[in-house]
């Protein structure tokens, strides 16, 4: 954490803001989402490969936001935000992953009808 400042505008979290960084964040996120949109509209990939590619683009977009918009790094002013995020990300993955895994198991053991499904989802 940064020390005390008599001028609030001199605080590191205020000083870290920069127009070029925010504009770079906007351009990179839009470009990555645009790439994901093009892949989606082409419909020419296997579902598994498609999910991996689009998921990778989403990860890069989120990383871009973390660095360019939120300004997360290992400086004294930001280290605890970065650490708390890194410690929380596994909770996101565990929450969604375990829930999908449990219901996928349940679905396979209890549901009889699978032939009418028109498109794959994460449960299948």
């Amino acid at each position: 954490m940064a020390g005390s400042h008599s001028d609030p505008l001199a605080h590191p979290e205020v000083r870290m803001g920069g127009a070029l960084r925010y504009i770079a964040g906007f351009i990179s996120t839009v470009a990555l989402m645009g790439a994901a949109l093009i892949v989606t509209m082409r419909h020419d990939m296997a579902y598994q490969s498609y999910v991996e590619l689009v998921g990778g683009l989403a990860f890069l977009a989120l990383l871009s936001q973390a660095v360019l918009y939120y300004g997360l790094d290992i400086s004294k002013a930001q280290i605890w935000k970065s650490v708390s995020l890194i410690l929380t990300v596994p909770l996101f993955i565990i929450t969604v992953g375990l829930t999908v895994w449990m219901f996928q198991s349940l679905d396979h053991r209890t549901m009889l009808i699978t032939t009418t499904f028109q498109q794959p989802t994460l449960l299948q």
């Binding site: 954490m1 940064a2 020390g3 005390s4 400042h5 609030p8 605080h11 979290e13 205020v14 002013a77 605890w80 935000k81």
Partner: peptide, 8 residues
């Protein structure tokens, strides 16, 4: 730092 405490 009040600002740091509040933002964290």
């Amino acid at each position: 730092s009040q600002i740091s405490a509040r933002t964290l």
